[in-house]
Nucleic acid binder design. Structure first.
Lengths: 213, 213
DNA sequence: CTCAGTTCCATTGCATACAACGTAGGGGAA
DNA sequence: TTCCCCTACGTTGTATGCAATGGAACTGAG
C-alpha cells in the first residue's frame, strides 16, 4: 500500500497514523467534515479513506451513522491470535522452503537488532512499530501474494503495543529470542523449525494477554 | 454484508453479480461512468462499490486507470487453496468444538441435499453457488467473527465453478460425500475429524485443478 | 416525574461540476 | 520509415451543493 500522491492516500495514511499512534482512541468518532477540515481536503477523499480503513478492520462504518475507531474486546484479541497462529507459521515455513535472498535476511536481522535496542530502552511504541515491520517482512517473504492483505486486518500495531506493555524482562527477552530464532530457521531452510518457533512466539504472546484479563 | 437500501449497496451487489455470474469476464474494464449510467446512478456510489470490490479482491483498481475484473493465474489458484486449507479446517474444527444448534445442522444437511441434486442434474452454476453457501455457513458456524471477512477474498464462486467443470462423476461423488462427512463430524463434536475431512476436501479440489494445467 | 411524540439539527449519502492525470493518435525530425 | 514529442481526448480524482437519514432535545400528556 504505497503512500501515493492522491488526496485519498494522504487521508488514509493520516487517519491510519492517528489510530495506530493512539491519538484517536478506540471508540472515537471520525466525522468526515471534521477530518476533511483538519487535513485541508474535501469530504470525498476522506470518505474513501474511511471506507478503506473499514475494509482493513481499523474502523467501523455504520450506514448513515459514520465511522468510529474499532473497540477491541478480549474475545477479539483471542480470535486475532488464533488466526495469526494459523497463518504466520505457514508464512515462516514457506519463507524457509523457498529460501530468502541474503539482503532480506540481513534486513530481518537488522530489525531484530533494532527491536532489541528498543526493548532495552523500554521504547515500547518504537518496539511495536519495528515488530510490525518484522512480521510484515516475514509475511511478504512467504511469497504468497494474498497473505499480506489477509493479515492487515489482524496485524494492527495498537494491539501489539498493548501486549508489550505487559511484558516483564524475561518475557521480553524470550520474545526477542524468538525473532532471532525464526530468522535462523529460515536461513537454515528448515520449514518445520520456522513454523514451530513462530507458533511458540504467538502462543506466548496470547498467553501473556490472557493472564491479567 | 447486507443488501441495504443505499445506492452504494445496489451498485456493489450489481457489479458483484456481474462478475460472479461471468457476465463481466476476467480482465473486463469497469468504467465508472458506464456502470453509473447502466445502473441509473451517479459515479459516486459506483466508485465506492468498486473500491469495496477491490478490497474484496474481485476487481483490481489502479490509480488514475480505473478498475478491471481480476485475472486469475494458476499460481493464484494454488495460493488460494493453500490459504483455504489453513483456514477452513480450523473453522470446521471450531464448529465441532463449540457445537451447532439443531437448526443449523438441518440447514447444512439441506444444502448437502441440494448440492447432490444440482450435481446429478449437472447444474454446475447452481452447484457452485450452493457450494459457496455451504462453505460460508460453516465459516460462520466457526464462531470466529473475523474469519468470514478474511475468506471473502478467496471464496469467489467463479473459481469454484471452474473446478466443478473439471469434475468427473467419481470426483463429484467424492466431493459431495465430503460435505456430508464434515457435517457428521461436526454433529459428532469431533474437531479432529471435521478438520481432517475439510482438509481432504480442499486438497482433492486443489489436486484436480492442477491436473490439466 | 416519566414516557411518548414531535421537531430540529448535525451528519452522512448522493449528484454534479471541475481539475488532473494517463493514453492514444498525429505530426515532425532524423 | 521510424522514433519521439506533443497535443487532444477520455477517464479518474476532487470539490461542493443538496437531499435524506438518525439522533437529540424539547414539549406535552398521563
Amino acid at each position: 500500500m504505497p503512500a501515493g500522491q492522491r488526496a485519498t492516500d494522504t487521508a488514509y495514511e493520516a487517519v491510519r497514523q492517528m489510530i495506530l499512534s493512539g491519538e484517536a482512541a478506540p471508540g472515537t468518532r471520525l466525522g468526515e467534515a471534521e477530518l476533511a477540515e483538519m487535513l485541508g481536503l474535501s469530504r470525498t477523499p476522506v470518505r474513501e479513506a474511511l471506507q478503506r480503513l473499514g475494509a482493513d478492520g481499523l474502523v467501523e462504518v455504520l450506514p448513515h451513522r459514520g465511522a468510529r475507531v474499532v473497540l477491541w474486546t478480549a474475545a477479539d484479541l483471542e480470535e486475532i491470535f488464533e488466526l495469526r497462529t494459523l497463518l504466520e507459521p505457514y508464512a515462516a515455513a514457506r519463507a524457509a522452503r523457498i529460501g530468502l535472498e541474503e539482503p532480506v535476511l540481513i534486513e530481518l536481522r537488522g530489525l531484530c537488532a533494532a527491536m532489541e535496542r528498543a526493548a532495552a530502552e523500554r521504547e515500547l511504541a518504537r518496539l511495536a512499530q519495528l515488530n510490525s515491520r518484522f512480521h510484515a517482512a516475514l509475511i511478504d517473504a512467504s511469497g504468497n501474494q494474498r497473505l499480506p492483505a489477509m493479515l492487515t486486518s489482524v496485524m494492527h500495531a495498537p494491539l501489539i503495543l498493548g501486549t508489550f506493555h505487559r511484558y516483564d524482562a524475561e518475557t521480553m527477552a524470550r520474545s526477542m529470542a524468538h525473532h532471532r530464532e525464526v530468522v535462523d530457521a529460515i536461513a537454515a531452510r528448515d520449514p518445520e523449525w520456522a513454523a514451530s518457533v513462530m507458533r511458540s512466539h504467538l502462543r506466548a504472546a496470547a498467553a501473556n494477554l490472557k493472564e491479567d484479563q
